[in-house]
Amino acid sequence: MFNQEKLSPRDLELLASAVDQNLSSPEQVEFDKRLGESQHFAESYRQQQKLKQMMAQLPTRSVPHNFSLTRAEAKKAKRSAIWQPMFGWASAISAILFGAIFGSELIFNNYSASPALMAKDAPALNESAPMAAFEGEAPPVYFINWNYSGFNDIGGKGGAGGISNSGGYGVNIFLANVPDLAVEDQVEEFAVSSAAPSDQISELSSDENFEEAAPETRELPEEVFAEPMVAAEEVLEEPMPILGASPQENAEPIEHEAPLIFGINPEKMGEVISESVAVQDAAPETEVAKPETQEVFPLSLRLGLLISAALFGIIWLYLRFKR
């Protein structure tokens, strides 16, 4: 039985050349050798010769009409040869522009959204602070007492809430990067120098963490500073770390002037402005974010490009595949 697998590619080439009488001299030698070696090869050659004769019997068809072009057909052919690539390019350019606009807006929105996202994520980040505080990795909490005149110009953080007999003003500002929970833990640690309990501090805004310790200059509302004042007295009862001598012994009464703090209205000092966290902080954020989300490219432009790409593409396909 004839089996194509029994004939190597070289055998096939030799057979084709032999049937078409196209063998070169070396090929003729090779062919004769193969013819004597393999009966399959010889039989294939014989069958293929017969097939070629059979194929040659097929009649030649006469053309139904001349295929030459008229002037009108030639003009039409040339015209469509211009329009087809033109629509193809137009469609491609529209699609690329639309893609570029869409992509750039995507990138632009992502970049502009990142500050908002950061602000949004900020509480979540702060929530991790208490855990960090337990692990001893919490950022330091500072109590700055501006009333403490310092000792030999040594001021510093964590000073007591003003020396009662030194007169002057005491400003307790609590600075912390951690939320209240962390502060409560830290307050115990800094109880010696703290002038106000943490819960009181947390309820007050930065403007309200202002203590005017000079009784002769101004009476402060009791509900705000009662506890801090008590706390300050308690602190004074405890021994202070002294370098050389105590400040009471060495310091002469110094007249202190109220520190100039920009942004604090002295006439409104001590007034409770708010006891809750200002909710209105969120509103300005959205107002600020609003202009950032403004569309750079108008919707009509994008729609126009999209429609153009589709329309030109359809016309191109029509011109490409129409008969």
Binding site: F2, L7, L12, E13, L15, L51, K52
Partner: peptide, 19 residues
């Protein structure tokens, strides 16, 4: 040309089988 020859020969073998 070698490809033409081998394709032709394969085509003829298939034609034989078909006929």
């Amino acid at each position: 040309v070698g490809t033409v020859k081998s394709r032709l020969s394969r085509a003829r073998l298939r034609m034989q089988e078909c006929l």
